[in-house]
C-alpha cells in the first residue's frame, strides 16, 4: 500500500474558551433525572458535567475542532475514549471557564475503519474567577477518512 499522506499538523492548537459555563440547579436536576437519579442534596453537580462543561465552553465547537483537523463533521466523528481527573467536585450555581489544546492528530490504518485520524485533546475547567484547574480531561475521537480509503 502507498504511504499515507500525513495528518494535518494541529498539535498545540488552542482550545481556550472565551465564555463561562454555569451549572444551573434546574439543568442539573433535569440532567440527573434523565439518567435515572435525583440531584445531590449537597449542592454538587452530576460529575458528567466534566464533559458537558468543557465541551460547551471550549474555544471551538465540535464541528470547529473537526474543521481544524480538515475533517467534515458530517462524516461522523466517533468518540474513542474520555478520561478525567478531578481536583474538586463541580458545584451547582458556580461558573467555570475552559483552557485546553489539541495534543495530537495521528493517522492510522484500521482493519475495521480503513484510514482514520485519532484526535486527542485536553481540556481543563477552572473557576470563573481564575485559579487552578478543578479538573483535567483528555478526550480521544476517531475521524474516519473515507476520502483516503483504498
Amino acid at each position: 500500500m502507498d504511504e499515507l499522506p500525513p495528518a494535518p499538523a494541529v498539535a498545540g492548537t488552542s482550545l481556550d474558551g472565551t465564555k463561562l459555563f454555569t451549572i444551573s440547579a434546574e439543568e442539573n436536576a433535569a440532567l440527573c433525572r434523565s439518567t435515572g437519579v435525583e440531584p445531590a442534596a449537597d449542592g454538587s453537580a452530576h460529575p458528567i458535567y466534566y464533559y458537558i462543561a468543557t465541551q460547551v465552553a471550549m474555544g471551538k465547537t465540535v464541528a470547529g475542532v473537526c474543521e481544524t483537523c480538515e475533517f467534515d463533521v458530517e462524516d461522523g466523528p466517533m468518540m474513542g475514549s474520555s478520561g478525567v481527573r478531578f481536583n474538586a467536585p463541580l458545584m451547582v450555581g458556580e461558573s467555570y471557564k475552559v483552557t485546553g489544546e489539541i495534543l495530537s492528530l495521528v493517522r492510522k490504518l484500521s482493519r475495521k475503519l480503513g484510514v482514520m485520524d485519532v484526535l486527542t485533546y485536553r481540556l481543563r475547567l477552572h473557576p470563573a474567577a481564575g485559579g487552578d484547574a478543578l479538573l483535567e480531561t483528555d478526550n480521544v475521537w476517531v475521524l474516519p477518512r473515507k476520502e483516503l480509503a483504498a
Binding site: 468518540m79 474513542g80 475514549s81 478520561g83 478525567v84 481527573r85 478531578f86
Partner: peptide, 17 residues
C-alpha cells in the same frame, strides 16, 4: 459508582466507547 458508595467523590475515571 455513586450508588454503590453513597457520598463518594469520583477522583478519576477513564471510559472507552
Amino acid at each position: 459508582l455513586m450508588a454503590a458508595f453513597p457520598g463518594c467523590r469520583i477522583e478519576a475515571m477513564d471510559s472507552r466507547f
